[in-house]
Design a protein around this nucleic acid. Structure first.
Lengths: 226, 226
DNA sequence: CACCTTTGTTACATTTATGTCATGAAATCT
DNA sequence: AGATTTCATGACATAAATGTAACAAAGGTG
């Protein structure tokens, strides 16, 4: 569950520094050198946060921010503006671009990362508080509790996410690759066979009281619930 | 009957955060971006409380407050002022604007909601709950006293707010980040592991007489009550 | 000022979860 | 059937997450 951060900065050196530090902190970093590229990437990628330089060639940072905030689909993505001088902060604020935070050059990497994390913390209130039901299995995302009939099941984090995925679309067949992407996270290199092991573990817990196996193995394709 | 709260704040992001949290708590939220708009809405809407930012473009928050308090028809509506720095509190107080309470940024959501409820309780007795109960634990928000069965527990401020958060939604799993936001306050950068320590402290007090541990650790996710 | 409380961080111990591998079973193909 | 591929599962070393004691800084109180 690596958050994706888009870095929009025209100066290559600056951009690389940002990218390096963010990557070191475990973020997936996507880079854009100007506003046009940024706006394209916003559509294509699934972003969790945008770091936006105030000064950009062509479409200015402010304009990019305004356009992002104008689209309902992307309005909720936090935008942190980076401006060159402290005096400009007031201008930016005054212009009401809708940025979620501002940071002024020169900034410390620590400060930047802290703000990035603060924004992510705020915008990701965890998975949606839903209750998934399939046959006699009930999964409550808010309390993280899982029941089969009357029995509460004790699942490890990975098995919990695995089951959540299955229950979001009962019957759908997921390939091992898809499950790795969704349950483990993208850009992670893990043997696809590992999925088998976790499926086994999930089966063990689900059938702990001798119930029928609800997970279906689809030979050559993957697994499905029911 | 849902109490109506008017939020007067020029920064859209801030305003939305306030609106979101108040709405989540069951309030009807009305928003205004400046003093003029606020004064209009006060006439039009039937308000139960006003949250007023000190810094506003045009008519300042102080001026808005003064005008509200000058009209006999609206004088009884509680006004909570929000100011950016603690030093300003004194100014605000000194100016005797007639505000009913003050809150300083950065504030925790818990604190804000507590104050809102406290004001509403004063003006509309009986409309806001003050006492949280979960199993044999009783938390009285007004007196700040906590009991487990017959024993009164002595909690530090942080542990008290932690427990309050948990008791508002028993069973719900809170991530460390969410707890930091809610219990410690936004715009504060603290190591997430610190949450663990405070959970430990809270557990110690709650189980001081050898009772079962009511706080559940959810690996990879956070903590929950029950 | 001395004293006490609260707080955040750190370091280390402990628990729990994870990924890989080896082996054998089951399905599929020739 | 025999060969081949695909899957299930127990074991195990490692990694990751959590619990907790100790400590120092900050703040409050008398």
């Amino acid at each position: 569950m690596q958050p994706s951060v888009l870095v929009v900065e025209d100066e290559q050196a600056q951009r690389e520094i940002l990218a390096y530090n963010l990557a070191a902190e475990g973020f997936r970093v996507i880079e854009a050198a100007d506003g046009t590229e940024a706006l394209l990437l916003i559509e294509e990628e699934t972003l969790d946060l945008i770091l936006l330089d105030w000064m950009l060639p062509g479409t200015s940072g402010i304009e990019v921010c305004r356009q992002i905030k104008a689209k309902p689909a992307f309005r909720t993505i936090p935008v942190i503006m980076i401006s060159a001088r402290s005096e400009e902060v007031d201008k930016v604020r005054g212009l009401e671009t809708g940025a979620d935070d501002y940071i002024v050059k020169p900034y410390s990497v620590i400060e930047l990362l802290a703000r990035v994390k603060a924004q992510l913390r705020r915008s990701r209130p965890g998975s949606v508080g839903v209750r998934l039901v399939y046959e006699e299995i009930v999964l409550d995302a808010e309390t993280h509790k899982v029941f089969r009939g009357r029995n509460e099941l004790k699942l490890g984090p990975t098995e919990f996410r695995l089951l959540t995925t299955f229950m979001e679309k009962p019957g759908r067949v997921w390939s091992r690759e898809q499950l790795l992407d969704r349950v483990w996270g993208r850009d992670i290199y893990i043997d696809t066979r590992t999925v088998d092991v976790h499926i086994g573990r999930l089966r063990k817990v689900l059938g702990h009281h001798g119930e029928v196996d609800l997970i279906r193995t689809v030979r050559g394709a993957g697994y499905a619930l029911g």
